[in-house]
Design a binder for these strands. Sequence first.
DNA 1: GATATTCCGTGCGCTGGCGTACATACAGTG
DNA 2: CACTGTATGTACGCCAGCGCACGGAATATC
Lengths: 270, 270
Amino acid sequence: MNEKLHNPPPAPRAGRPAACSQGAGARSASIENSLLAALPRKEYSRLLGGLEPVTLSFGEVLYEPEERIRHVYFPGSSLVSLLTLVDGHLALEVGLIGRDGVVGVPLILGHKESSVRALVQGAGTALRMEAAQFLAEFKLSPSLRQELYRYTHTLMAQISQTAACNRFHLVEERLARWLLMTHDRVKSDQFHMTHEFLGHMLGVRRVGVTKAAQVLQERKLIRYSRGDITVLDRGGLETAACQCYEVVRDMHDGVQSVPAARKAEVSEAA
Amino acid sequence: MNEKLHNPPPAPRAGRPAACSQGAGARSASIENSLLAALPRKEYSRLLGGLEPVTLSFGEVLYEPEERIRHVYFPGSSLVSLLTLVDGHLALEVGLIGRDGVVGVPLILGHKESSVRALVQGAGTALRMEAAQFLAEFKLSPSLRQELYRYTHTLMAQISQTAACNRFHLVEERLARWLLMTHDRVKSDQFHMTHEFLGHMLGVRRVGVTKAAQVLQERKLIRYSRGDITVLDRGGLETAACQCYEVVRDMHDGVQSVPAARKAEVSEAA
DNA sequence: GATATTCCGTGCGCTGGCGTACATACAGTG
DNA sequence: CACTGTATGTACGCCAGCGCACGGAATATC
C-alpha cells in the first residue's frame, strides 16, 4: 500500500504562467537543437522564421495532462521531463528531453493534448512555435517530418526502457543513470537539483534519494550541497548506473550495437 | 537486489519460426481490426489485397529487439504483448495490442527495428503485410497514415501509464487490470494464461501472481485452473484494479474525460 | 543578527515482494 | 495404471523501500 508517496504535488515551485521570456540568441540558439540542426538549409531557415526564442525557467509546466498543447518546444540548453501522474499525487518521469529532441510529440501524431506533464527540469534556452503554425510547417517539410517521426520512435524506446528500469533496478542505480542522462544534455558538470525533486523523477521518497546520493558521494562520484550537484567522476557514475543508461544512449546515436550473443540465438532461416 | 527474477527466459514455448499458418476468413477477418475497419472503403479494399490472413499461436515471437521487422500485423482475435527486456533475463510488458491496434509501429516512424519483443499472448487471427509493401501502401494512403499515427500516440500514452502503474501499484491491482485489458480484447470470458506467464507480463515472480490470483478467486472475481482463467465478475475486477485501467481504456475511446477538478487548477489566462 | 525557510541527515517499525525450496494436484502419454 | 511433466500451493528468511517523525545545517528574509 505505497499510496501516499510524497505529499506535495509534484509542481516544485514557480507558478504556471508565462515565465518564459524572450531570449537573446535567436539565430545562434537554433542550432543548439540537434533536430533542427539536421534539417536541410532551406527548410531550416524557413522554419527558423516562425520560431520564437524563449528562456524556460526551472519548475515551469509546459503541458498538463489532457490539456491542449499550445506550443512545440525545441530545447537548446534547457531540459524537459515528461511525467506520468497517477492517483493525483504521484509522479514518475518517463522521458527526458534535451537538445536532442522536441517537446510536443502528440501534436505530430495528430493529437491536440498531451497525456503527460511536461516539466522544465533544467532552466535554459529553447525555440518554440505556436501549435497551429507548427502543424502547417510540419505539413510542408518532409525532412522535418522524417526527423520528428524518427525522434518519436526514440522517445518511445526510451519510455519503454525506463518503464522496465523503474520496475527492476535499485534506487542507487537509477539515480546514477538519471544524473548521467542529465549530464549528457547539459553542458556543465554542475546543475541544480534537490533530493525532493529527484524523488519525484524517480518515483521514490526524498529520503530514498538522500540515501542513494550519500553512497555516490562517499564514492567521490558526485558532490552536492543544498541542491547543487556536481559530477566528479563520470566513468564511476557509469559503472554505478544500470545498463539502461547505455541502452538508451545508444538508441539516440542510432548505434544499434547488436550484442553478438543475441544475434546468434535468432535463426535467420526464412 | 532483485536481479534474478525468473530464470527461464520469457519465451514460454513454441519455437520461433513460421508457426503462423494460413487462416480462412480472409475478407471477413479484416474488419475484426478496428484500425482497418475505420478506413474509407477505397483505401481499405486496396490494402486488403496485400494483407495475408494468418493464425498466430501462443508464445510466438513476432519481433525481437534490434531485429529487423519483417511484417506488420493487424490483430483480429489475437493478442500481442510488447515486452521490454532487461539484463537479458527479465521481462516487463509495456504494451498490449489487440484488435484495436497494430504491431509494427516502429516501421511507420521510419525505423526498421523494434526496440522491444513482440510476443503473441493470445492465439488468434491477424492480417499481416510484408514490411516493404506496407511502407509503400503507407505512403499512398493518407487515411491509413492518420489512423496509425493516432494509434501510435495512444500506444505511447498506454506505455507511459503502464510505466507508472508498474512502479506504484500492488501486484493484485495490476493483475486485475491486466485481466481486464485482456478481457476487453478477447471475445470470450475465458482465456489460457499460466501464473508463470503472467509473472513475466507483470514483472513479478510466479508466486506473486499465485498469491494475488488466490485473493481474486476467493472474492469470486475469477476462477482458474491449470492456466484456464475465467472472468466471473467483471465489475468486481474493475473495483479491484487500479485506476490505470480506466485511464488507458478511455484513451482508446478518445473520451478524454477531463476531471473537472484538474481543469480548474489550470489558469486559462494567457 | 534574529527568524523563517529550505535542504539534508537519521532513526524506527512495517510490509510487499524477492529468492529459494519443496509439496501437491492435475493432465497427457504410453 | 504408472509415469512424467506442468501448474499451482505453501513456507521461510530477507531486504529495499515505505510512512512517519524529528534534528541539524545552510540560506534567505526582514
